[in-house]
Design a protein around this nucleic acid. Structure first.
Ligand SMILES: [Mn+2]
Ligand SMILES: [Mn+2]
Ligand SMILES: [Zn+2]
Ligand SMILES: [Zn+2]
Lengths: 141, 141
DNA sequence: CTCTCAAGTAAGAATGATTCTAACGTAAGT
DNA sequence: ACTTACGTTAGAATCATTCTTACTTGAGAG
């Protein structure tokens, strides 16, 4: 109840009920990677007059301040999460669900030899695959 | 002159001057990863009346037929290339230039242990870094 | 050779995601 | 309480992409 309010103080951002609701929602769903639109529908339940632009602005400022991470595994839209520990992602080619990939090897160091004329700063691996739910549905056919 | 026309026959796609120009342009620039808009400006030099939608349609059908690959390293827009050999990419955090990463290890097999409930089908690594040009420009400050 | 028609094509309209702008609210300093 | 400066947010605008529909083309029928 108190902690999330301090988060905004720490980030030097003004605390508003809308922002509280947006960050609170994302913190509430560990392991999820909601899109702006998904966050919008949820927050609208409590703040029916909130604008989608406020969602985008808030996600943007929280990402720039380093409190959220932007996941770009879905070329249709951005997804967000609050878990800042470096990790990779996997998307289901069937239903689009996004999962975390916590593999120490792939996070700490990647044995790459040739990146042309570039100096590597970081990397992110986008896996694709089929989730458990979709495998089970396929099995029923 | 003849080969590119056969490409469309092989793909079972009707040959049009616009399509010829679009694919020809991409084949002409190995190592580049142009966006729809970039292709549009170039093709428009020869076909001033061409629509941007035609570019999107053509890129889409050529991608679906497997003749082009869609690169999603840039969250702002898609990029395309004609090199079908599996490889990864690196984007310059300074100027946005996209480079190829041809590393056998990372292409053939990735030693991944935990992907949750997913069955892995494939992966693509997005590296970020600084390109040679930008490094040299920084040095001049 | 000409007609029909089904399938393919492409321009402009529509959509969806994201960003911009300008009016508004807030709070610190006087 | 008044001013002012700054952050906030709704709606407008923009950008990338997709949809719709009138047009084109060419294979087969007559
Ligand atoms: Mn994650
Ligand atoms: Mn490439
Ligand atoms: Zn699935
Ligand atoms: Zn650069």
């Amino acid at each position: 109840m108190k902690k999330i309010m301090d988060e905004f103080k720490d980030l030097e951002l003004k605390l508003t009920p809308q922002r509280l609701a947006i960050l609170g929602l994302i913190l509430d769903k560990p392991g999820r990677h909601p899109s702006a639109e998904e966050i919008f529908s949820k927050v609208k339940e409590d703040y029916p007059s909130i604008s989608l632009a406020t969602i985008y602005n808030t996600l943007d400022v929280l990402t720039k301040k380093g409190r959220l991470v932007e996941i770009t595994i879905d070329s249709k839209k951005k997804h967000y999460e609050s878990n800042l520990d470096p990790h990779h992602h996997i998307v289901c080619t069937c239903c689009g669900k996004i999962g975390d990939v916590w593999d120490e090897e792939l996070i700490k160091k990647l044995p790459v030899s040739d990146v042309g004329d570039f100096e590597v700063q970081g990397w992110h691996i986008n896996f694709s695959g089929i989730c458990k739910d979709c495998r089970e549905k396929q099995g029923n056919n």
